[in-house]
Design a protein around this nucleic acid. Sequence first.
DNA 1: GGCTAAAAGCAAATAATTTGCGTTAGCAAC
DNA 2: GTTGCTAACGCAAATTATTTGCTTTTAGCC
Lengths: 200, 200
Amino acid sequence: MASKENPRPGGRSARVQAAVHQAVREMLARMERADVTIPLIAQRANVTPSTIYRRWGDLQELLADVSASRLQPETEPLKTGSAWMDLQAWAEQYADEMSSGAGRQMIRDILAVSDTANAEKCSGYTQQQLRVIVARAEEQGEAFPTLTELMDFVISPIMYRILFDQVPSNDYIHGLISRVMPKVAASPEIAEITADVSGV
Amino acid sequence: MASKENPRPGGRSARVQAAVHQAVREMLARMERADVTIPLIAQRANVTPSTIYRRWGDLQELLADVSASRLQPETEPLKTGSAWMDLQAWAEQYADEMSSGAGRQMIRDILAVSDTANAEKCSGYTQQQLRVIVARAEEQGEAFPTLTELMDFVISPIMYRILFDQVPSNDYIHGLISRVMPKVAASPEIAEITADVSGV
DNA sequence: GGCTAAAAGCAAATAATTTGCGTTAGCAAC
DNA sequence: GTTGCTAACGCAAATTATTTGCTTTTAGCC
């Protein structure tokens, strides 16, 4: 039901989709989420409500669709020199984005819908970013956790906290990463880097 | 807005709440979730819709409320002899319940609402159960992870997978638990138990 | 037993959603 | 280009859900 890939790529359909997405983003920025309705969105996007109902089904699916597209990363993880630090910096930014009011709401909107396509897409984005960092580590021969380990022991705890209780601090994230790093990370040299970064 | 604690414990209010909860549970069991509406619930509960609107606000909050109450555990974790095995058995059951269609839907309903009270309650239930197991381990002098470690490295990865992609297998859970156990778990004696359990 | 206020019922008013049908506009074949 | 085809859109009527003002019930308290 959610807006799938290019039914008629260059045409009116695409323009409508863009206008609706745009309208939703603007409205979410300007008003209470509870006050956002399909008729209002339709009005702002210069579209009839029935178009939105037919294409997205209901408000939840539309919001999930918009949120998923907003969570698509636009850049690769920053390159700091060591994959370890890339990971630390990336994870902090990830947690920051996701635990902000807007970020939490986007995740909720994505998870609320029974169709898991958007949730999978979102998790896919995360994995894509992490893969880049893992690949860098490999290139440089740095000892590094696998993608699965990162998802299970860094991303998952962060996401759980965001969803169920509190926002994860940078110290907390740092602890997760230290723990998942290969034992080499306990060597004095790396410990020093660790101290540096956690002090930022 | 969600039904808080005892405004007038013994009276009509409580009866209405019970009737509405009951109606929701029955309807969720008998029909498509998308077809459940407040007017229908009201009818089945012999209550006017405006009562539900005033008390819960909207369908999402009502469903979140009902789901949270359904997730409250009724029994303590089973006692198998070792805290380690208690944990394994409990985590498997937890993952099973949560990854079933109904379980996933309940979690989604709880997370969908912006008020995090229900989500916290739900996470609280989990921690309560785990605390029982941790306490048993302590009593018996068994080496055991902390509650925080269990939440971060066992519960969180399970929940992430349920929410974002696939259902966690028992083998996967077993792997998580092995990994979080103190190094003692690598001793031959425990390794043997491990093999037994994973074979179940 | 009577008072009080919170919660429920009722019904009218408003708003959202669905639906049938006519219209528009990409796309392709010619 | 022009034409034909069809997916997607617009429009408006019908349906359904939600809100709201007012009345009635009833639990808790003296």
